[in-house]
Simulated scan of single mutants.
Amino acid sequence: MIRQKGNSWFVRWRENGAQKQKHFGIGPDAKLKAELYESEIKLAKKRGEDLAQKRHRQGLFFNELGQLYVDNLRATGRSENHIKNMVTLLNNVFVPLMPDRPVAELTFEHLLTFAGEFSGRAQSTRNRYMDYINAIFNFGVAHKLITENPMANWKKTREAKRDVQLTVEDLGRIIQQADPHLAWALEVSFNLGVRTGESELLALQWRQVDFDRSEIKVYAPKTKTWRIIPINPEFLERLRAKNAASVSSSIVEYKGKPVKSLRRSFRGACDKARIDYPVRFYDVRHLFCSTMLSKGAGLPAVSELMGHGNIKITNSYVHTQQIEKTRAVGLLPNITSV
């Protein structure tokens, strides 16, 4: 049966008791292709042909490879949030724009045209999308579902380094304008340096806090590792008070329930605080790192606190500290007076 979601046309049918679907893109031509494919399905069923075997002869299509990739994500224990995000991208972005041909027939030129569909998006978003596509093709090769990756020669476009401008003073202004649950989340972020969002900050549980040792154990799904973060005495008392009043097991909660997202409320607090430069919630984590480095903290220790897999990643935060560069240059002697 032909369906349309947004401007994208696709065909949905049942095969051996399971629901299948194939996308054809947008526009009149896509609709025509969908109609022809639906007719092909009906004819194959009327003749008693095995659709699975027929498609096997043609080769695996990208939507089928994508579905197998998602099944593998579930089987290997990836988070539901990651799986949901991948399914949304496959259904609404990747599959509708991918050329309608078996993966074995896709060329590097096809992928360049596909990448061109994202030209209006930020470079970081385009790189992330192509990384996902590359991962799907690599999965296909690794499991011998396809013989080669058409993106084998793909090189990621270098992203311009983002200028993080958030200061401790401005963070204080944002916290003053924030709703109580957001203000607390910002305080937790700055004192622990956790990755913001569902992966770390919103996943923090009270059972991870060791009040006797003044430390918290944080799990990083990104690197699949645990790290221990010491808690300074003042913030430890804040944690004790919040724990006593907490209703749920989550450190960050709203009306007794875990919080799913803080982006909208954070944007509102920034507007109220009249922050006139681009700022993301993730910048609080940058501020945690750069503040410690600017005050003389050792790079290896800060790298461990951040949960970075490579100390070079932590080192990239140093460039934001203009005050440190000014201090370093100030150590030079006056050459004319020597």
Rank of each mutant, 00 (worst) to 15 (best):
M292L: 13
K295N: 11
F266E: 04
R280H: 15
G268C: 11
L287N: 00
V279R: 01
K272V: 03
L293I: 13
F266M: 11
R280K: 14
F266Y: 12
F288L: 00
L287P: 00
P278Q: 05
V279P: 04
I275R: 03
M292A: 05
A273H: 02
L293G: 09
C270S: 12
C270F: 06
V279H: 05
A269V: 08
C289G: 06
M292N: 09
K295Y: 04
I275N: 02
R280F: 10
R280S: 12
P278A: 02
C289I: 03
T291K: 01
D283T: 07
K272I: 03
F266A: 11
R274N: 15
D276S: 14
I275W: 06
K272T: 01
A269W: 10
R274H: 15
I275Y: 05
S290N: 00
Y277V: 04
R274P: 12
F288N: 01
M292D: 06
D271Q: 13
S294H: 02
P278G: 02
F266N: 10
M292P: 12
R267A: 14
S290I: 01
Y277K: 13
K272A: 09
L287W: 07
Y277G: 13
S290V: 05
K295D: 04
Y277A: 11
K272G: 07
V284M: 03
S294K: 01
L287T: 01
M292H: 12
R285A: 02
S290A: 02
D276Y: 04
Y282W: 13
C289W: 10
S294A: 10
P278I: 02
F281M: 13
K272N: 12
P278W: 05
D276K: 04
D271F: 06
C289S: 08
R285E: 02
S294T: 10
F288Q: 00
T291M: 02
F288M: 01
R285F: 04
D283H: 07
R274C: 15
F281R: 05
L293V: 11
R267M: 11
D283V: 10
S290F: 00
H286Y: 03
S290Q: 01
H286K: 05
S290K: 00
A273C: 07
F266T: 11
P278D: 07
D276C: 12
R267C: 08
F281Y: 14
S294E: 13
R267D: 12
G268W: 08
T291E: 00
V279L: 03
V279N: 00
G268A: 14
R274Q: 15
R274K: 15
D276T: 14
Y282M: 10
R274S: 15
C270R: 05
C289Q: 07
H286R: 05
C270E: 09
V284G: 08
F266G: 08
R267F: 11
A273R: 04
P278M: 01
